[in-house]
Simulated scan of single mutants.
Amino acid sequence: MDAPAPARTMAVSTPSLRHSRLEDIQALCAGTLFVAMALVLFGQAGLLTGGTAGAAFLLHYTTGVGMGLCFFLLNLPFYGFAWKQMGGEFTIKTFAAIALLSVLTETAPRFVTIQALHPAFAAVFGGLMLGTGCLFLARHRASLGGATVVALYLQERRGWRAGKVQLAIDCSVLLAALAVVPPARVGWSVLGAMVMGGFLWINHRPGRYVGS
């Protein structure tokens, strides 16, 4: 007697669902607000982060120019690369997020003042908030420019994990900060970068999230 033929399993493919305009706006605002609050924590603890934001912190600490303005100006050279490699929609969303973050970074300290803040808490909680905000933006095809654009580009085109790339860039910037910032602050800042990079490494994998 012949054995019954094995039942065929039908592969069900889930189509990618595009985000609505309202969903994109909500994610851009929420993600940028998360990042802005993280930068407020870092600023009040005397810490900094990696990537373009870290370079903006260094300029802010050394020149006294507003951190938000430094961040906006440092990102200008990356828009051409983003437009060419990642597309117009990504670039426009990224520009909107950077402009909003620049404004929030300048205005938030007027409304948020923390009397006591241990750098360890600022590093860990701020790193988690940075990772969460960047994840919101990445899942809606946006970023905060600079190193994040490069990290997302390498993930999409080369399959490199964005968290790994971001962590490598961030640590490089923070090591360069030893020439300007006291070593203890740099050490806590490296912890924040590791928390952020680890969060993205675990939660932002190629192919895991199919929204666009």
Rank of each mutant, 00 (worst) to 15 (best):
A123V: 04
L128C: 07
T32D: 03
P77H: 03
T113D: 14
F111M: 10
C29P: 11
K93N: 14
V112I: 15
L130A: 01
G54T: 03
L100Y: 05
A27V: 01
C70S: 14
L128F: 05
V40D: 14
G64V: 08
G127H: 00
G126T: 06
V65T: 15
I98E: 05
T62A: 12
V65E: 11
L69V: 15
A96Q: 09
A82K: 01
L104F: 11
G31P: 01
F72R: 00
H19W: 09
V124F: 05
F121V: 15
A30L: 11
T62G: 06
T107P: 02
A55Q: 12
A96M: 12
A53L: 04
C134T: 15
D24L: 04
H19N: 08
G68P: 10
T132C: 12
P109K: 00
T107A: 11
L69M: 07
G133E: 06
C70I: 01
L69A: 12
A53E: 02
I114A: 04
G64P: 02
G66N: 10
G88F: 12
G133N: 08
L39A: 07
V40C: 10
M86K: 12
F42E: 03
G54I: 02
G80Q: 13
L76D: 07
T63L: 09
F90A: 07
A97Y: 08
F111G: 05
P109Q: 06
E23V: 07
L69F: 10
